[in-house]
Design a protein around this nucleic acid. Structure first.
Length: 454
DNA sequence: GCATGATCATGC
DNA sequence: GCATGATCATGC
């Protein structure tokens, strides 16, 4: 059952799909997220959580550590434990091992083009809270984050480069056997061997050295984890809000602002200076402010549930002013991918917080309510028709021929590029303007009516 | 440089 | 009034 769930739950060739699927683990355990009941067939030892994630959650066969776990997407999965200190703070339980050091070849590398940088460029980090005596299936996942050495803050990266050079220079000087973890600050060369006697050759000395691997020190992992965790804030509940579910809480927080225009809200919160154009992410900013989360933080409850806030302007007749768009599609990918495996199917799994503004008699749009919306399962079939119709048009050389809103109850296809010269190649070799799927305004009208009539 | 959210323009 | 094609502008 786990395998049948997981094969359709994400697309292992698509980065976004992998990350989105992985993010659903945040705040939960493998026992809750998969049908695994015991970890018996997985060795109950160090690494058992990581293996169980691959096996039960991602439905990956156990593979050797040399190949990336998601080859096509270029992502390598790494799981790592956090622990809670006596004071309550979280810290990394272990260093994060990135890959073995080959003394013979590393001496010819530069940091920027090193095997390490290549290997540690796209890591999907899954951090879980380790607790003594707990079954690994019951560890709670705290962090799911795509990390890349080259995209660390500049200060971190320059120290890591110094660390790398310190270690490599020792090898270059024929002193690989003298390397110590204490030589460096963030990145270390930690010993990594099946037994204490194992030794490896080094290029500029006859003395054999202990096998070592590149690793980010536990202290560095602690700092990085906390930085990631702090970037996520939960909505702080007052005592009077303790019993509310998430939607109830969100509604209660928005209610005092009903009747205001988006412009007024933006000005009130200091996101718009009068006369200036409003920021693109105004809806997200206002939502964070109203929910009491700082401007640059992710809303933990929303992240965990995959909820995206979206402004919805409704005209007096109940129709949304605009359709809702999805990211542009690639004609080759569309042609080759059935709906179940498509990005579009993943996007439709999106849950929205529609922040609804309704048009008043003067033509002003005023905040009137907030609702959660996700496409009902029955309508996914209609969306699939739209997708498969567009797919067959592309396959038949008619990529320019969009599926119109009049052809499908739920969605349609429309250009969404910079301009008409912003094109992508099709399997037939011609260039067609970038397009994407859209949710029909009329469809959204009936969906929103269902949600708000009650 | 590009994606994305927002908006415009045209014609049925 | 709406569908459809097109483009703008911010921000990553």
């Amino acid at each position: 059952m786990a395998s049948s769930n997981t094969t359709t739950a994400y697309n292992k060739d698509d980065r976004q799909s992998i990350v989105e699927y992985a993010s659903m683990l945040i705040g939960s355990t493998l026992r809750e997220s998969t049908d695994a009941e015991e970890i018996a067939d997985i060795k109950r030892s160090k690494g058992s959580f990581g293996e169980a994630v691959e096996y039960y959650y991602f439905d990956l066969k156990n593979n050797s550590d040399s190949a990336p776990d998601f080859k096509e997407a270029g992502i390598e999965l790494k799981t790592t434990p956090l622990k809670r200190n006596k004071g309550g703070a979280l810290s990394a339980k272990e260093r994060l091992v990135l890959g073995m050091i080959n003394y013979m070849t590393v001496v010819d590398e530069t940091f920027e083009t090193s095997h390490l940088m290549e290997k540690a460029d796209d890591i999907l980090l899954i951090s879980y809270l380790w607790e003594p005596d707990k079954d690994p299936l019951d560890y709670e996942v705290e962090i799911v984050e795509l990390i890349s050495l080259s995209e660390l803050p500049k200060g971190d990266l320059s120290q890591i480069k110094l660390d790398w050079e310190t270690v490599v220079n020792k090898v270059r000087n024929g002193r690989a056997h003298e390397i110590s973890g204490s030589d460096t600050l963030y990145l270390e060369a930690c010993t990594k061997a099946a037994n204490a006697q194992a030794r490896r050759k080094q290029p500029y000395s006859d003395i054999e050295a202990k096998p070592r691997a590149w690793a980010l020190k536990a202290s560095f992992m602690t700092a990085m984890s906390n930085r990631i965790l702090e970037g996520m804030q939960s909505i702080e509940r007052k005592a009077s809000e303790a019993g509310l579910d998430l939607l109830g809480l969100v509604k209660k927080r928005f209610a005092p602002y009903y009747g205001m225009t988006e412009q007024e809200l933006g000005e009130r919160f200091g996101y718009i200076t009068p006369g200036k154009r409003k920021p693109k992410n105004l809806c997200a900013l206002i939502t964070r402010r109203i929910l009491g989360v700082s401007d640059d933080a992710k809303i933990e409850e929303f992240e965990k549930a995959g909820i995206v806030p979206k402004t919805m302007r409704i005209k007096r007749n109940g129709t949304p002013k605009e359709s809702v768009s999805f990211p542009k599609f690639d004609y080759f990918e569309l042609a080759a991918t059935p709906f179940e495996e498509s990005d579009f199917a993943t996007y439709l799994d999106q849950k929205y917080l529609f922040v609804i503004y309704r048009e008043d008699e003067e033509g002003e749009y005023r905040l009137s309510e907030v609702v959660f919306w996700q496409m009902p399962e029955d309508d996914l079939e209609e969306a699939e028709h739209c997708y498969e119709e567009m797919r067959s048009r592309v396959n038949n050389g008619h990529a320019e021929d969009s599926v119109k809103a009049t052809e499908n109850r739920c969605c349609h296809v429309r250009p969404h590029g910079r301009d008409s010269n912003d094109t992508l190649p099709t399997p037939q070799g011609d260039q067609v303007v970038k397009k994407c799927f859209w949710l029909n305004a009329q469809y959204l009208k009936t969906e929103i009516a269902k949600l708000t009539q009650k």
